[in-house]
């Protein structure tokens, strides 16, 4: 499950997650799995838990940060709500360690297929849409930087 250990593409990782979620035949199992995923999220350092890295429009607090290493983008995040943290972990699992251009272009429709559809409305107060937007924005910003060989960015 550790994205750093695999060279799988965004699509492959997404398909793997869809498969894992399909294993549960009820919503409760899916939520428990989501919460469990949240525990494996690479945590953003406390000094970045500031407004600059906060995703707006969430009922809980959510922070996400990206950095580039060897041309790939890596994410860290956190949330004070466990379900939201699980949602961040889903995105990070699929997107971390990928080329920024691939992140920016990723359709991410796997979210539709994992049985958590109710979280996908852009008006829902978990900010999933906001997270995706922010993560793609980071990737776009890093795509230029990464090509120039810089190692980190905020």
């Amino acid at each position: 499950m550790n994205p750093l250990e695999t060279q799988a593409t965004i699509d492959q990782r997404a398909a793997e997650l869809v498969e894992n979620f399909a294993f549960f035949d009820d919503w409760m199992g899916r939520y428990e799995y989501l919460i469990e995923l949240g525990q494996s999220l690479p945590l953003i350092e406390d000094e970045y838990k500031s407004d600059a890295f906060k995703i707006k429009g969430c009922q809980s607090q959510v922070w996400v940060r990206a950095e580039a290493r060897e041309g790939l983008v890596y994410y860290k995040g956190d949330s004070d709500a466990m379900i939201t943290k699980g949602l961040v972990a889903l995105l990070v699992h699929v997107l971390s360690g990928q080329p920024p251009e691939a992140v920016a272009a990723a359709p991410l429709d796997f979210l539709d297929d994992i049985g958590l559809k109710e979280h996908l409305s852009p008006t829902r107060k978990n900010g999933l849409a906001g997270m995706v937007k922010q993560m793609k924005r980071f990737a776009l910003a890093l795509s230029g930087v990464a090509q120039n060989g810089a190692t980190t960015s905020n």
Partner: peptide
């Protein structure tokens, strides 16, 4: 977190 509780109650 109230959001977590509310999400489960909603379901």
């Amino acid at each position: 977190h109230p959001y977590d509780a509310g999400t489960i109650l909603d379901r």
